[in-house]
Amino acid sequence: MLTILFRTIVIYIILLVVMRLMGKRQIGELEISDLVTTFLLSEIASLPITDTNIPVAFAIIPMIVLLTFEVSSSWFLSRFPILKKFLSPLPATLIFDGKINRREMLHSRISLDELIGELRQNGISDISEVKYAILEQNGKITVIQKAECKPISAEQLNIEVCDNGIDHIVISDGCVNKHGLEILGMTYEELENILNSQKLKKSDIYLMLIDDSKKVKIFKKEKN
């Protein structure tokens, strides 16, 4: 048990250092510590399931150690943000005011093809339109266009737009979704009134959505 405990700690620290040195591109959407924990947990959990020669305790100990590291690291990082720079690389500005920062590109090991591809994915074909392109801590590239290249908003045109909010599911496959009604602040009777006004029964409805402005959308069940 003691050997397993120390081995888990050693491997966790080594993996953390390796992933930190690999840079942002290998991380994906997760934090480095999250990624290391996910890697290790999936392997640890599967071993005693498939190999009956391994006692379950050999998987429980590393799992508890990883849980402790994960919870304590996020706890400490939320209280002492300065520690974050040791675990996660700082954001890197790859393009500033339409100019590519070659030093940061080399440092972050991002190729021009990758950068241009990311810009294309953001709907930008001309680098000179970019105010900032920042490689974030999770490995994603945030692209911010120059003000003159940004699409015109309704606010800039002084046009009033109706914000209907989001749709909430009220009836799903004939069943009332109480949570949806609670969010909308509606009662069961109000729902019944809407259904009666449209001469519908709950059982006839496949999906009923109501948005924040109380606009109702109903999709009836198809009759076979």
Partner: peptide, 22 residues
């Protein structure tokens, strides 16, 4: 709460490891 539960689990595990080791 999760931090306290985790710390408790970790200490419990250390105790089990210690006594089992002995």
């Amino acid at each position: 709460r999760s931090f306290i539960i985790t710390a408790f689990l970790f200490l419990l595990m250390l105790c089990i490891i210690f006594f089992n080791m002995q």
